[in-house]
Simulated assay, not measured.
Amino acid sequence: MADFVSKEAVMSSSIKKQSASVFRVFVRSQIVMLELVALGVALYLIQQKSANAQTTIAILLFCVFVFTLLTGKGFPHFRHRGKALLLLAVTGFFAVQGATIVEQQREAHLAELRASDPAAFLTELREIDEDRWFEELRELDPDAHAVEAARRSALAEAERLAQCTDQKASQAYVMIQADVRRTLVAPSTAEFPSRYGAGTGHAGDCLYQVNGHFDAQNGFGAMLRGTFTGTIRYFPERDSWQTQTLSVN
Rank of each mutant, 00 (worst) to 15 (best):
A9H: 06
V10P: 00
S13F: 08
S19G: 03
S21D: 09
F23V: 12
F26P: 00
R28M: 13
Q30D: 09
Q30A: 14
Q30F: 13
V32T: 09
V32N: 12
A38Y: 02
A38T: 10
A42N: 06
L43V: 06
L43G: 07
Y44T: 13
L45V: 15
I46V: 15
Q47I: 00
K49H: 14
S50F: 01
N52W: 15
T56H: 05
L60K: 06
L60F: 14
C63M: 15
L70F: 15
G72D: 07
G74V: 05
F78C: 01
R81L: 08
R81F: 04
K83A: 06
K83S: 08
L88Y: 05
L88F: 12
T91G: 02
T91N: 12
F94K: 06
V96Y: 12
I101H: 10
E103L: 13
Q104G: 03
E107K: 14
A111T: 13
A111W: 03
A111S: 11
A111C: 01
A111I: 08
E112K: 13
D117E: 11
A120V: 06
L122Y: 05
E124K: 11
R126V: 01
R126Y: 09
E127S: 14
E130P: 02
E130H: 09
R132I: 04
W133C: 06
E136N: 08
E136S: 08
R138G: 06
L140Q: 09
D141Q: 11
A144L: 07
H145V: 01
H145S: 14
A146V: 01
A146R: 00
R151N: 14
S153K: 14
A154I: 11
L155H: 09
E159P: 02
L161S: 02
A162C: 00
Q163H: 03
Q163V: 01
Q167W: 11
S170A: 14
S170E: 15
A172Y: 05
Y173Q: 05
I176F: 03
R181K: 11
T183A: 05
V185I: 15
S188P: 01
E191L: 12
P193L: 02
S194N: 15
T200F: 00
G201N: 03
H202P: 01
A203T: 03
G204A: 03
D205M: 05
Q209F: 06
F214E: 05
A216F: 08
N218H: 04
F220C: 00
G221A: 04
L224S: 03
F228S: 02
F228K: 04
T231R: 12
T231I: 01
I232V: 12
R233W: 00
Y234T: 03
P236E: 00
S240Y: 06
W241Q: 10
T243A: 04
Q244P: 00
L246P: 01
